[in-house]
Nucleic acid binder design. Structure first.
Length: 309
DNA sequence: CCTGCTGCCTGCAAGC
DNA sequence: TGCTTGCAGGCAGCAG
C-alpha cells in the first residue's frame, strides 16, 4: 500500500526517467482506471498524445506530471496519478511482457540516459485492485496561494514533509474538530500522506491513543505528533531510497514499503519495542476502528478518559 | 457545514 | 476438495 514515502520514491523515478519526454501514444487497457475522471478513454488518448512531461510533483499521496503542449507554452494541465492500494508506475521496454494488471500504457519519445544508453519507451500504470487511477486535469492555484495543483487535488492538505506545512494552523484545525486523533490523521484534507500503517506508527512514536479527542490536544502534543509523522515517513523514505538503482525497483513504489520496520502495526500479541521489559502489560493490541484495524501498546498508549472512536 | 459510513476492487487465507 | 466468508485499505460520494 503506497503511502507518502512510496509515492515520493515513485515521483523521483518519474522525475529522472520521464520528465522532458513526449507522450507519443496512449493505450487504455482498462477504462476503470480512468474512473470518474475523464470524458472516456478515447478523449484521454486524444488529449494526452503529443504533450510533453515537464515536471513530477507530489502532495501527500497524489502525484502529478505537469504537461506542456507542442507550442511550448506554460503547462496548464497535468497528468494526475493516484496509486490507490496497489498501483505501480513502471518504466519498461516494449518487448517486456504485459504485466497481469496493466491498466494504462503511455508510449514515450526516445531518450538517452546519462551514459548514452537508450531509455525504455513505455510508462505503464499497473494496478491490481483499481483503487487508483489517472486523469488529465486542469492546474489551478493552490488554496494557500503558493503554486498550482490539479483541480482534483486542490482539497488535499499539504503533507508534513512539505516545507510549507503549517504546524500552528494544523493544531488550530485539529482543535476545531470533534473527532478522534486517528480519524484526523487519516483525513487528507487536514494533513495528507498518512495511511493506516503510518498513522499507527506515528501514534505509537508519540505515545498517543487513536481515540484521543482532537479538541483536547495541546500545542506540545500536536508538535510531538507532527514530529513523529515526519520521523516515521522520513525513515521509510531513507529505506526506500537506498534501493534506487534498478529501473524497476525505482518507479514501482514498493521498495520503501517492504523494507520498513514497524513498531506497532501488524504486531498484535508481541511485546512493545519500547516497554517490553514490563511483563504482560506493554503488549501490542489490535482493536477494531472504523472497519479496519488499529494497533497500539497497551501500556504506553493508554486509553484516554474521554474516548472518540 | 460537519461528521462518519458505504462502496468500489482483487487475491489470499481461513473455516466449514 | 471446493465453496463461502473475511480481510486488506484510500478516497469519492452521500446521508444524517
Amino acid at each position: 500500500m503506497p503511502e507518502l514515502p512510496e509515492v515520493e520514491v515513485v515521483r523521483r523515478g518519474v522525475a529522472r526517467w520521464v520528465v522532458e519526454r513526449t507522450v507519443e501514444d496512449v493505450e487504455v487497457v482498462d477504462p476503470r482506471s480512468l474512473r470518474r475522471y475523464t470524458d472516456g478513454p478515447e478523449d484521454f488518448r486524444r488529449e494526452l498524445t503529443g504533450l510533453t512531461v515537464v515536471d513530477a510533483c507530489r502532495r501527500g499521496k497524489f502525484l502529478w506530471l505537469p504537461v506542456r503542449a507542442a507550442d511550448g507554452s506554460e503547462p496548464s494541465r497535468a497528468l494526475l496519478v493516484h496509486l490507490g492500494m496497489s498501483g505501480q508506475l513502471l518504466v519498461s521496454s516494449p518487448e517486456h511482457p504485459r504485466p497481469r494488471h496493466e491498466r494504462i500504457r503511455l508510449e514515450l519519445s526516445p531518450a538517452l540516459d546519462e551514459s548514452g544508453q537508450p531509455l525504455p519507451e513505455q510508462l505503464r500504470f499497473v494496478d491490481q485492485r483499481i483503487f487508483g487511477g489517472m486523469l488529465l486535469d486542469r492546474l489551478v492555484p493552490a488554496s494557500d496561494g503558493h503554486g498550482t495543483v490539479p483541480e482534483h487535488a486542490v482539497h488535499i492538505a499539504r503533507d508534513p514533509l512539505d516545507p510549507l506545512f503549517d504546524v500552528a494552523a494544523f493544531h488550530a484545525a485539529l482543535r476545531r474538530r470533534r473527532t478522534g486523533l486517528k480519524r484526523a490523521l487519516l483525513d487528507q484534507g487536514l494533513i495528507s500522506g498518512i495511511g493506516n500503517i503510518y498513522a499507527d506508527e506515528a501514534l505509537w512514536a508519540a505515545r498517543l491513543h487513536w481515540a484521543a479527542p482532537t479538541e483536547t490536544m495541546t500545542a506540545p502534543r500536536t508538535y510531538t505528533l507532527v514530529a513523529a509523522c515526519q520521523e516515521v515517513m522520513r525513515r521509510a523514505l531513507d529505506a526506500g531510497g537506498t534501493s534506487f538503482d534498478s529501473l524497476y525497483v525505482n518507479v514501482n513504489g514498493e521498495s520503501g514499503y517492504f523494507s520498513r520496520s514497524l513498531n506497532a502495526y501488524g504486531r498484535a500479541g508481541q511485546p512493545c519495542p519500547r516497554c517490553e521489559a514490563g511483563g504482560d502489560d506493554g503488549v501490542i493490541v489490535r482493536e477494531r476502528f472504523a472497519n479496519r484495524s488499529s494497533y497500539r501498546c497497551s501500556r504506553c498508549q493508554r486509553r484516554p478518559r474521554r474516548f472518540r472512536p
